[in-house]
Structure formats: structure tokens, C-alpha cells
């Protein structure tokens, strides 16, 4: 386990190092003054500029500048947004939780539908039901999220009026922002409309979560199916069959448990995919998350926000990946002794 941990932390360290180098060099690659790009302070006067030069070691070598930059990042200073002049860290604190909330809801939907469907397909291997589920997975995987999201809005918002088409909550509900997670904020608030607001927030998250969940769900279907097929063909299942256990008993007690182990790790791998899909869905559903914020920053040529958003989102995704690896290693002792990391 120690070996495994060291290997993972090593990977984490070097990836973050590369990431920070790329992010730092962007301030030179972007048009304009590197110091302004780094700090985002477009209206700084002479005195403030001098302070910033000192803060970011701009009068010293590039290496010193880089270490100063890293120092600032670790102390939580990502600069301020060029367009809104609000600290990037504040904006991240506002928008990142919304993205995480959406991703978690989508992951939940993808798992509770995807995994059982995959198991069913495996159990009825090569039968019509298997084919139907596989076709569904293939179609779902091929549909681009921006198209699917628009179809969902057209059908469920505009035509049927079941769900709202945008935002996280009806704006007339005044909920104070504490954590940035809408559901938690509503529960924390002492608003007299708490129950209504909770229901409203639920209605708002349904469509975006479905749109984001579709692609990962189809992946989970196929993963669960393969994983279950592998397990069902293994020798201990054959032995269990030979002992005369019923099919249902075998699947419930041996099949599901053992095939779930393989899936846990892949959830981590697909989280990056999920975040990418969420960014697109956020723009379409007007979801005030880190994705739509980042895309807006690109439109506004807000280089400081692009840098900060890049480093925050990338490290976030990477931490999730590493976390899933650890979880997998904890569940599956075989993995800890592999010589080469995946």
C-alpha cells in the first residue's frame, strides 16, 4: 500500500507541476502585459503596480516569477477577474460548488440507472433484452449533449411545461449563499419558503442532470455489462453453479459484489468526462457553474479568470481521479501490488 501511495502521490505532484507551468506560461502567451494577465488588475495605478511587481517577482528571473506565482496560488490568491474585478477565488467559491452539485446529481442518475441496466444486459447475454439495452447505450453515447439538452428543453420545458429551462432556482426565492451548494444553502436558510424553494431547486436540476448523465450512463451500462460477464465466466461462479446454487443467488451474492469493484475505479476515470459534458450543459441551461463562468471568461478575454479556472478545474478533476484510485485500491487488494500504474 505504501508503494502504491507513493506512486500515486508522485503522479499527482508531477501532473500539478506541469499544470502550474502551463498556467503560468499562459500569462506570457496571452496578449498584453504578463503582470496584468497574472494579477487581473487592469486599473492599477503606479503605486499598486509596484506592489504587484514585488508580489509576483516580476523584476527577477522567470524561475523566481514562477515560484512567486506558485506561492500566491497556494495562499489562495488567483488574482482578480479582469472583467468583474472580483477575486478569482471568490468567483470559484461561488461557481465551483454549482458544478459539483450538477455533476453529483448526474453521477447519481448515471449510476442508479446505468449499472443495473448493464447487469441486466449481462445476465441476459446475447438475448433480445441485451441487444435492446446495448442499442440504447450506443444511441445515448452518440448523441451530442448540446443537441440532447436542447431537445429536453423543447420537449419538457417549452411544450410540456414540466420543468424550468434554466438556472438553479427561481430568482424570486431569496436564498443567502453560504456554501454555494443550492440544496445545502436552502436547508441552512431560515426562509419561510424553504419547502417551496427546495422543490423548485429540485425541479431545476432535473433536466440538466439528465442531459449530463446520459453519456456517462451509457458508459456505465457497457462497463457493468463487461464486468458482470467477466465475473460470470470466472471459475468460482462455475464452482458455485456446480454446487447447485440458484442463478439469482449466484448473481446477488457473488456476481454483483465482485463486478462492482471493477466499476468504482472507472467512475473516477469518467469524472473528467462528466465535468466536460457539464460545462457544455451549464451554458445551455444557464447553470451558474464553473463551466459557464469559464466559457464566459473566454468570451470576455478575461485571461486571469481563464488561468485560475483552468488550474482549479484541472486540479479538481485530477484529485477526484486519484481519490477513486485509492478507493479502488482499498476495495481490491490485487491492485496495490501491480508494478505499473495505469
Amino acid at each position: 500500500m505504501l508503494n502504491f501511495t507513493i506512486r500515486r502521490l508522485n503522479l499527482l505532484f508531477f501532473t500539478l507541476l506541469m499544470l502550474s507551468i502551463v498556467s503560468f506560461s499562459l500569462s506570457y502567451f496571452f496578449p498584453g502585459d504578463a503582470l496584468v494577465n497574472l494579477s487581473g488588475e487592469i486599473n492599477a495605478d503606479q503605486q499598486r503596480t509596484e506592489q504587484l511587481v514585488e508580489l509576483y517577482n516580476m523584476d527577477k528571473s522567470v524561475f523566481h516569477q514562477y515560484t512567486a506565482y506558485i506561492g500566491q496560488i497556494f495562499s489562495g490568491n488567483f488574482g482578480i477577474s479582469m472583467s468583474s474585478q472580483v477575486p478569482i477565488s471568490d468567483e470559484l467559491h461561488t461557481f465551483l460548488p454549482a458544478t459539483i452539485e450538477l455533476c453529483l446529481a448526474a453521477l447519481f442518475i448515471a449510476l442508479i440507472f446505468g449499472v443495473p441496466l448493464g447487469f441486466i444486459a449481462a445476465i441476459f447475454h446475447n438475448k433480445p433484452l441485451d441487444k435492446i439495452i446495448l442499442t440504447f447505450a450506443m444511441v445515448g453515447y452518440s448523441i451530442p449533449v448540446f443537441w440532447f439538452a436542447l431537445i429536453l428543453i423543447l420537449l419538457f420545458s417549452i411544450t410540456l411545461s414540466w420543468f424550468p429551462s434554466s438556472g438553479q432556482l427561481n430568482l424570486l426565492f431569496e436564498i443567502e449563499q453560504v456554501t454555494g451548494f443550492k440544496f445545502i444553502d436552502i436547508l441552512l436558510s431560515d426562509s419561510e419558503y424553504q419547502a417551496q424553494a427546495l422543490k423548485d431547486a429540485f425541479m431545476h436540476i432535473v433536466l440538466p442532470a439528465i442531459a449530463v448523465a446520459t453519456a456517462p450512463m451509457t458508459i456505465f451500462i457497457r462497463l457493468a455489462r463487461t464486468s458482470m460477464l467477466d465475473v460470470l465466466e470466472s471459475n468460482y461462479i462455475k464452482a458455485a453453479k456446480a454446487k447447485g446454487l440458484s442463478q439469482a443467488h449466484i448473481i446477488y451474492h457473488h456476481g454483483i459484489r465482485n463486478s462492482l469493484v471493477g466499476i468504482v475505479r472507472l467512475i473516477g476515470l469518467h469524472f473528467a468526462n462528466l465535468v466536460t459534458v457539464a460545462m457544455i450543459a451549464e451554458v445551455i441551461f444557464n447553470w451558474q457553474g464553473a463551466g459557464s463562468w469559464l466559457i464566459e471568461s473566454i468570451f470576455a478575454r478575461d485571461y486571469t479568470a481563464i488561468q485560475g479556472g483552468l488550474i482549479a478545474l484541472a486540479s479538481f478533476t485530477f484529485f477526484i481521479n486519484i481519490l477513486a484510485d485509492f478507493l479502488y485500491a482499498a476495495l481490491n487488494p490485487l491492485e496495490r501490488h501491480k508494478k505499473h500504474g495505469a
Binding site: I153, S157, I158, S161, P164, S165, S166, G167, L171, N286
Partner: peptide
């Protein structure tokens, strides 16, 4: 004031009475 720069998104929100 719900700030919605996209004109299609404003239209959608009007159609859904948001």
C-alpha cells in the same frame, strides 16, 4: 433582473414563463 445575454435563451425563458 435576470441577466441573459443570449436572445434565444431569453425567448425560451419567456415561453416557459421563467
Amino acid at each position: 433582473f435576470n441577466i441573459s445575454p443570449g436572445n434565444t435563451s431569453r425567448l425560451t425563458k419567456l415561453l416557459t414563463h421563467e
